[in-house]
């Protein structure tokens, strides 16, 4: 583990108009970790994710990636710094084929790596290879999520931001997706920051976790600690452990 965290969020505050969504959030993601952020609806999880990407912009505080302040950079420059985002709701390009979607993911990366990255993505999600000439919108929800992650990976990220990858997916598919994330982390050493409502699976997967309530981080610790914590169990895991 390096001395300096890969991503550092310091006292970040974000507003939607007059409504304060983030009330001073501080957290960090170290290189090689899987860190998860869990919380209820409207806690500000996705807002934090979006703020890291510069839209909406943080009103106060600092976001530092790899020693560089990215708080005020435009979104496309942030994502060019090897931060890849797989957005909430997948947001694949529905009329474009799987292959075209993956090419779009590689927009910012060096074309020399394209073939290798493509092979890697297909290896990770063989289903995508079967469907490479199929339109994105005709894929099932799980396949679309695989595509969204694969597309993000095509940018050769050092930090992968995943916003609710389990949203609307069958438990079996959620398991597949999470296994793929684990593999990425273990084999490629990819750093992953995961925002999830599915607290049980997310905490089981993650090295560390943060719990967010009403725009502030109320708890943090290793995945196991949080899983064992009474508060977390009561608030997020009742009936969630499927």
């Amino acid at each position: 583990m390096s001395e300096q965290p890969l991503l550092e969020v310091k006292d970040v505050e974000t507003f939607y108009g007059k409504i304060q969504a983030l009330k001073g959030v501080t957290m960090e993601v170290n290189s090689g970790e899987i860190v998860t952020l869990i919380g209820a609806n409207g806690a500000g999880k996705s807002t934090l994710m979006m703020t890291i990407c510069g839209n909406p912009r943080a009103a106060a505080g600092q976001i530092i990636f790899d020693g560089q302040d990215i708080t005020n950079l435009p979104t496309h420059e942030i994502t060019r710094m090897n931060i890849a985002l797989s957005p909430e709701g997948r947001r694949i390009f529905p009329r474009m084929t799987v292959y075209e979607n993956l090419i779009m993911g590689a927009t910012t990366s060096d074309p020399a790596y394209f073939d290798k990255d493509l092979a890697h993505a297909f290896e990770l999600f063989p289903r995508l290879k079967e469907r490479k000439d199929q339109r994105g919108g005709t894929l099932s929800g799980g396949e679309q999520q695989m595509l969204a992650i694969a597309r993000a990976l095509m940018a050769r990220p050092r930090l992968l931001l995943l916003d609710e990858p389990s949203l609307g997916l069958a438990p079996l598919v959620v398991k597949q997706i999470f296994e793929a994330i684990k593999m990425l982390n273990e084999q490629d050493g990819l750093t992953v920051f995961l925002v999830e409502q599915n607290a049980y699976h997310a905490l089981k997967l993650a090295n560390r976790g943060y719990v967010m309530v009403n725009g502030t981080v109320t708890l943090s610790g290793t995945g196991k600690e949080l899983l064992a914590s009474e508060e977390v169990r009561a608030a997020y895991l009742e009936g969630g452990a499927h």
């Binding site: 496309h76 890849a84 947001r91 474009m96 779009m104 927009t107 993000a152």
Partner: peptide
């Protein structure tokens, strides 16, 4: 790439931004 970026923009602007395209 520019043509594909146009089509991607038509499909989903937010996704485009998340992929590092300057919309």
């Amino acid at each position: 790439p520019i043509g594909r970026a146009w089509e991607a923009l038509r499909e989903d602007e937010i996704a485009c931004r998340s992929l590092g395209l300057n919309t």
